[in-house]
Amino acid sequence: MNHKASIEFVNIHKSYQRTVVLENLNLTVAPGEHVVIIGPSGSGKSTILRLLMTLEKPDSGEILIEGESVWHTTRDGRNVDASPAHIRRMRGKVGMVFQHFNLFPHLRVLQNITEAPIRVMGMPRSQAVRRATDLLDRVGLADKAEAWPAELSGGQKQRVAIARALALQPRIMLFDEITSALDPEIAGQVLQLVLDLAKQTEMTMLFVTHQMRFARQIADRVLFFDRGRIIENGTPEQVLDHPQQPRTREFLNNVFQAS
């Protein structure tokens, strides 16, 4: 398995109505790699993660997860649209944490986490509860199991959302600006949690973030993105300290001025 790439985008095109978001995108991520995507607003960063999470479907091209196409299968030697069952199996390999948490407001914290293991994996309730309790402990919210999401602070909500995504034990985790709705101090705590998590697991991880310090700490590789294209691609030192493209330099200047 290890020789296979964890994620491959091959000639991906994606547009919404009139706006072309991604044009002929090619991207490969190795198993266990931590990739940080940076870039200006509207450049298509979220779209990449949403495509991987199958929240969006590419207009053309192939997305491969662990060497297997997400949207297509071969039948009688021909490439055909994959069945919903196939797509769901592929989707099961990926988990995602959202900018605005997207917790289920009608379910208590513990239920937010146990719902998917029980209904998607068919896990017995007692086992799901045990796992959820462990995860809550790991994100430092053991005492909030019976709280409603509305009773939590932003940072706490995001911790629950992380635990919820982890409960399905995905092989790939996607983090889309998970701290941009949080106060800087709280954001730091959540990012520390993610850093610890990244050390403890072998998951492939993709991050979209504007936190350059965090990017430096966690990234094996940084991609700078502009208007749906990868402008720069390298180690944190290469991209953040010695950017080759004027566009990257301009963006980084703006980010550093803002912070």
Partner: peptide
């Protein structure tokens, strides 16, 4: 989105 990301049917 969250429901899809959690692979709900």
């Amino acid at each position: 989105d969250a429901a899809t990301a959690l692979n709900f049917s």
